[in-house]
């Protein structure tokens, strides 16, 4: 029996559950510590999982939007061409464990972009095979700002199951039917419904830095502002911020040809690169780094709210942590808002 879609699980119960999920044939993607960094990895054993980190170096978006993905294949033979369409049959059912609420929330902006009028099959096929077991944040750092973009350290958006570390055990909130199935299949791992567990008290305190509505409202009139030049001066124009972002979806389409056959690939790209918008003629509508920085902020905080009713940011702070020159996005947004 599950009451109010809430259960409790011990640390041991959790490890058993995840081990059973792997044994049951699902792929597990979970955080593993390596030196001073923690990264998501495909795991065969739950022993490697680490939950000490505040943030993994990359988000979990690569499960639904891999850094390079085959869109279809082609064969050429004596002038004739045959195509093999994208084949989702070999994709595995995947459980992502240990992502934080800001990463789970990232699948909303990603999904909005990939389903804007025309559904994107490769993304959707992967996404529908994913179950997200998210873990609430009990600690945060100075780069975190989820509470400024409609999120929070215990936010359930995007998750199928949300675990919140209580003093001893974990509170288990079942959010979706997918989550329900994953719990019901291994019900013995869980304990009776908790009583008086104070989830809020266990969550990290993440201060609000700005109001997204205010930022969006101001940005709509700031295209010509000098602020872009000032803010972007130190920006080096790499793609680190975009690639670690859980909501960045920009991509390139490339050809991996091997003689008479090959694959058409989709691979990550970034609006920060000067080549991103370069025309063959040499004309570039975004020829300077300040124009590209403007595009990054405008896209996430003005265009996406306007066109897709979603903010292109979940406040995970990865872009700021990854930036070689400390382009702190929350600080820049707070200056605007």
């Amino acid at each position: 029996m599950i009451h109010n879609n809430c259960l409790q699980i011990t640390d041991k119960g959790l490890k058993d559950w995840l081990a059973k999920i792997i044994a049951g044939g699902k792929q597990l993607y979970a955080p593993v510590r390596e030196g001073d960094k923690t990264a998501f990895k495909w795991l065969d054993s739950v022993a490697e999982i680490s939950m000490e980190h505040i943030q993994t170096t990359q988000s979990a978006k690569a499960v639904a939007f891999p850094r390079a993905e085959k869109l279809f294949s082609y064969q050429k033979e004596k002038g004739a061409v045959t195509l093999q369409d994208y084949n989702p049959d070999n994709l595995s059912e995947t459980v992502i464990f240990g992502l934080h609420p800001c990463d789970a929330a990232g699948f909303r902006p990603l999904g909005s972009i990939f389903n804007w009028d025309t559904p994107d099959k490769p993304y959707n096929e992967r996404r529908k095979r994913m179950t997200l077991i998210t873990v609430s944040c009990t600690k945060s750092d100075e780069f975190c700002f989820c509470t400024s973009v409609n999120g929070g350290p215990g936010n359930t958006e995007g998750s199928d199951i949300l675990l919140t570390p209580l003093k001893k055990d974990y509170l288990v909130e079942i959010i979706t039917e997918k989550g329900q199935k994953l719990v019901e299949a291994y019900q013995s791992c869980f304990d009776t419904p908790p009583e008086n567990s104070d989830k809020e008290a266990c969550l990290a305190k993440v201060p609000v830095r700005f109001s997204p509505e205010e930022v969006s409202r101001k940005l709509s009139g700031m295209f010509e502002s000098k602020v872009w030049e000032t803010q972007s001066e130190r920006c080096l124009g790499c793609g680190a911020c975009a690639f670690v972002c859980p909501a960045c979806a920009c991509f390139d389409i490339q050809e991996n040809s091997k003689g008479n056959s090959g694959d058409r690939l989709r691979c990550w790209d970034s609006c920060g690169f000067s080549l991103f918008t370069l025309h063959t003629s040499g004309h570039n509508p975004r020829s300077t780094q300040s124009q590209r920085w403007r595009q990054r902020l405008m896209h996430k905080f003005s265009y996406m709210p306007d066109r897709l009713s979603v903010i292109g940011c979940t406040g995970c702070g990865r872009c700021s942590r990854a930036c070689p020159v400390d382009m702190n996005i929350a600080e820049h947004l707070a200056d605007i808002g």
């Binding site: 990264a39 990359q58 124009g237 790499c238 975009a242 990550w268 970034s270 070689p324 020159v325």
Partner: peptide, 11 residues
Amino acid sequence: KCFKCYACRAA
């Protein structure tokens, strides 16, 4: 692990 963000080049 490299995802070709070219931060090494940019820096």
